[in-house]
Design a protein around this nucleic acid. Structure first.
Length: 622
RNA sequence: GCCCCAGUAGCUCAGCGGAUAGAGCAACCGCCUUCUAAGCGGUGGGUCGCAGGUUCAAGUCCUGCCUGGGGUACCA
């Protein structure tokens, strides 16, 4: 989490002061807070200390340099205090539009070129449905994957499946208990004792039990298997309480069929939902098959022991994590001989660092994990283990996200407190994929998120995703009408007004010969009912917003903050809506209409790209 | 106790040490015979939790305190 890099729009389409190397001086081009000051600005104050001069004097001294560099582009410069303010000429603004139209994908850049990132997120236990919190990590993680890739990084999104350990036995046995309960209800079993509690009490377990009983993929009937288990168990309590099963390895092993069913069923449900959300993982990493069955956990622990980073005490194996800044040492092997979750996770991370590419070099140079704030205490020990194993710990990053509160009927409810848990699937089917995803990334991961189901569905005014989508749909509508006017214009009968605003031939010719010069009429010609000053203001704001898209993408990538991109999409939508209200696009005059039309095309393209990076659809109609 | 996150307009939140701290929603006043009113314009609304400190400059950095959330397992 190295946040020292400063975002500088050095790659902006219009003003490209590469010759000035602003960044090496610690300066950057920024958007002035007050629009009246100009379109861009350079604040020279950071140089004040070094040069022992007041910012205004420095600005004065730098001005000729900048003036010279920007001369070709007809920029207007003027000084206020320590600020060099830059006003863009109409020809530069035209270039900005042209640039967007030229690009295959707006905002595409190479800011993260050379980075190879393994991004692990969600990694939910395969013991139940995903909840709303998982939804936040899914939306956040997938957006980051898209954003990182847009900045030239190679990204592998990965999901770690904890399919080993106690919780897996727990869900399997719970399903068995529920299945038995169902069979007993249908046809009373002699010797059956109603269990006082289920290891996993959730209602979804009953559904899983039902599914298990009707599943015939194994050839034999699962109900027969359940009854068999029941009859073979000869304890005073039948079925036995979970504690008895847990303590007896042989007994536990008997429940393997139902465990396998649970794992594959639950994981499949999770995967279907994630894909439905547009969240795609390149790899699912299975703890049992990839770590335990390959002895990787043992090997890692042996290495730690060998290098004296792990030691025995009180019958347990401890990691010497306090040596690396953790507040205390941590257990790796419990005194009952079983591994802790940490032990397996260390092996997993060791495996991550050990992966090689085709040339035998380390495959990744960044390892990012998205964890909930409840795992915060875990960071120090994981870092300790990574250092103990000799891996570059600075390549290990944790994005800690604050938790999600579900708001129902205006009241916050903590996850799991209600007996009837509202799952992520319930929420998505209620509010839709787009609203869910946008909502989840619209706020900084550092702040706790309230997810209000009613708000996300009903009150569209408070649900900003539609605002951005509406802007896109409006653009689409204009483009449709330009070439295919609505046929149902009964009030108008003369030929001219039923014809398209621009002919397809004119459109194609304009597109084929497009140069920045084609946009000159935007700034020069207006309809009688338009106020040039108002139009120009809205137009300029819209173009500047378009031009800052790449910077916005880079910023989101560097700071891993998709929420700033969500904000950008709303700001671009605002600039567009404002322009739409001051300036008519479709007019009878092609020289006026075509440049405006292609500006709309650039807006539509950029808006669609911004939404795409957030995994939100850009509808053609609403 | 210790660790992490947050505290900015009535509400939900942006805000990369730099110009007069910004959006959305809510409130109030306007704008549809014209490309989608899921839209646009305008008005009101702030001791940036509190107290110190660093700096030419602090909502932003440091220290302490207050409030809320999370964590502090031989759970996962």
């Amino acid at each position: 989490m190295d946040n020292t890099g400063k975002v500088s729009p050095g790659s902006s389409a219009c003003v490209a002061p590469q010759t000035l190397k602003l960044e090496q001086w610690g300066l950057r081009l920024e958007r002035p807070k007050n629009e009246q000051h100009g379109d861009y600005a350079v604040n020279v104050s950071p140089l004040a200390k070094q040069l022992r001069q007041g910012p205004p004097q420095i600005a004065e001294a730098l001005n000729p340099l900048l003036d010279k560099a920007f001369q070709e582009d007809e920029l207007g410069l003027h000084l206020i205090g320590g600020f060099i303010n830059v006003s863009m000429s109409h020809s530069l603004l035209s270039k900005a539009i042209h640039h967007v139209l030229e690009q295959s994908q707006p905002g595409l850049n190479d800011d993260l070129a050379g980075q190879s990132i393994l991004l692990e997120y969600v990694s939910a236990n395969p013991t139940g449905p995903l909840h709303i919190g998982h939804g936040r990590w899914a939306a956040l993680g997938d957006s980051l994957v898209r954003i990182f890739r847009h900045c030239g990084a190679v990204v592998t999104p990965e999901f770690y499946v904890n399919d080993a350990g106690l919780q897996v036995l727990k869900i399997g046995y719970s399903i068995y208990l529920r299945a038995l309960e169902i069979l007993h209800t249908k046809n009373p079993l002699s010797g059956y004792t109603q269990p006082t509690e289920f290891p996993y009490p959730g209602e979804y377990v009953i559904d899983l039990a039902q599914a298990f009983l009707s599943d015939t993929s194994k050839g034999s009937k699962n109900s027969d298997w359940v009854l068999q288990q029941f009859q073979h168990a000869q304890k005073e309590l039948n079925p036995a309480p979970f504690e008895a099963i847990e303590a007896d390895e042989e007994a536990a092993a008997k429940y393997d069929p139902v465990i396998q069913f649970a794992l594959s069923t639950v994981l499949t449900q999770q995967q279907v939902l994630l894909e439905n959300l547009g969240v795609h993982f390149e790899a699912y990493f299975f703890e049992k098959a990839y770590l335990h069955q390959r002895d990787l956990v043992t090997q890692v622990l042996d290495q730690l022991k060998h290098d004296r980073f792990a030691y025995m005490q009180d019958g347990a194996l401890w990691l010497n994590s306090s040596e690396f800044g953790d507040e205390k040492d941590r257990v790796l092997i419990k005194s009952d001989g079983s591994y802790t979750y940490l032990a397996a996770d260390i092996a997993y991370h060791h495996q991550k660092f050990s992966r090689l590419d085709d040339n035998g070099n380390p495959q990744y140079n960044r390892f990012i994990n998205i964890w909930g704030a409840d795992h915060h205490g875990y960071i120090a020990r994981m870092r300790a283990a990574i250092q103990a194993l000799g891996h570059p710990v600075e390549q290990f990053e944790v994005l800690l996200g604050q938790l999600v509160n579900l708001v129902i009927d205006g009241e916050k409810t903590r996850m799991g407190k209600r007996r009837k848990m509202l799952t992520l699937e319930d929420v998505v089917s209620e509010v839709g994929v787009d609203a869910t995803r946008f909502w989840m990334v619209s706020k900084s991961a550092d702040t706790a998120l309230d997810f209000d189901v009613e708000l996300a569905t009903s009150q569209t005014d408070e649900n900003p995703v539609f605002y951005a989508q509406y802007a896109h749909a409006r653009c689409a509508s204009i483009l449709r009408n330009a070439l295919h006017p609505p046929l149902n214009t009964q009030s108008v009968t003369d030929d001219e007004s039923t014809a398209p605003f621009v002919s397809e031939a004119a459109y194609l010719e304009f597109e084929a010969t497009l140069t920045p010069g084609h946009f000159a009429p935007l700034f020069q010609q207006f309809l009688p009912q338009e106020t040039p000053e108002t139009v120009l203001t809205a137009l300029k704001q819209l173009i500047l917003k378009l031009d800052s898209f790449e910077d916005s993408v880079i910023e989101s990538a560097r700071f891993a903050t998709p929420h700033s991109l969500a904000r950008y999409s709303l700001e671009l939508a605002t600039a567009f809506h404002r322009f739409y209200n001051t300036c008519r696009v479709l007019t009878p005059d092609p020289t006026l209409t075509l440049p405006r039309l292609f500006l709309i095309l650039a807006v539509k393209k950029t808006l669609a790209q911004a939404l795409e990076l957030l995994g939100v659809s850009a509808p053609e109609r609403m």
